[in-house]
Computed example of a mutant assay.
Amino acid sequence: MTTPSEPGDGRFEPGLSAIMSERRQLINLSYRLLGSLADAEDVVQETYARWYAMSRQQREAIESPGAWLTTVASRVCLDLLGSARARRESYVGEWVPEPLPDRAEWISGRPGGTPADPADRVTLDESVTMAFLVVLDSMTPAERVAFVLHDVFRYPFAEVAEIVGRTPVACRQLASSARRRIRASQAPATPAARRADIVRAFKQAWEAKDIDALIGLLDPDATGIADSGGLVSAVLRPIEGAEQIAHYAVDIVFRVPDLVILERTVNGEPGLVVQQDGVTVVVMALDVAGDRIKHLWAVRNPDKLRPWTMGP
């Protein structure tokens, strides 16, 4: 739907519905760039504010409003990523990307377009897994933006270069560097059904307080990370090793016996949600490599759990 501009000028200004239809795309992009739904929503709000701060004539002069909105949102994200490292230094404990509930909109991406490098293309559902987001968080801001725009959302390097403020060749190098990080972190794929079985077995062993069973499901060098932001109680450093993780998990159930553990999809993969008195207090993402759990990310920060407490 478009809204006619001034009579006789022969141009049309995109209407509200056409502009707002880009919101899902912008949220998808911003979340992958920032790892935070709350920050992504702030970025989209800022992007629309900049659009409507322009005069009608300025908006009419933009040939592709969707491309303009994407460019602005990406640049806002790039600025935020640049300051994120400083903010993380004051964050209490470990920082984990904000977990997302199982909603189809989070894995929708840019429609159309032909992948430039099919062999390197990352599918959209893979790009929101917790393991993937953790690797993205280890990249430089420019690497992350170049990689996500090109490998996930299929933007050509010429467009990426305009957004990042570097040459297409430099952006290609940034994406290649990011791609190597991703490949180095990836374990052999475990079938989805098998991952679900392992997570279910972990849940049952946890409920049964079966330390030996938990140890058997965990990789000997497994790592457990809790993110509380200092707002609730949680271990502030990573827990290393299967035995330590198993004992810590069972200790929690002994200390808080009324916890309810539920199987839920977390960032597109089998995960667990822990509730107390009907309130979600932990969202856990698990990375399965082979037949063992290699990483556990337990988000306790209530600010990051809002999407899980607000309902669908």
Rank of each mutant, 00 (worst) to 15 (best):
I239K: 07
D219C: 01
L286P: 04
E60C: 05
V273P: 01
E240K: 10
E263W: 00
F202T: 11
A18C: 03
R103A: 11
L262Y: 02
A119T: 04
V253H: 05
D287P: 10
E89S: 09
Q244C: 01
D287W: 10
V122C: 02
N28D: 11
R59Y: 02
G8P: 04
T3I: 14
S90I: 07
D39I: 09
G241F: 06
T2H: 07
D227C: 13
I107G: 00
A184R: 15
D137P: 08
D219F: 07
Q275C: 11
P14S: 06
I163R: 09
W206T: 14
F147G: 07
Q275D: 09
A298G: 13
V122G: 08
G8A: 08
E243D: 02
G10H: 11
I62P: 01
D79E: 15
Y155W: 15
T167S: 15
Y52D: 02
G113P: 00
A201S: 15
G278Y: 09
A246C: 00
D79M: 08
S228Q: 05
I245Y: 05
D291T: 13
V135M: 11
V250R: 03
A242K: 03
A53W: 04
V253G: 05
I293M: 14
P220D: 05
F254W: 12
G278K: 11
Q58D: 05
W206A: 06
G278A: 14
F147T: 07
S177E: 15
P141I: 01
D303F: 13
V122K: 06
L33Q: 06
L149Q: 10
I239L: 12
P168H: 09
I215W: 02
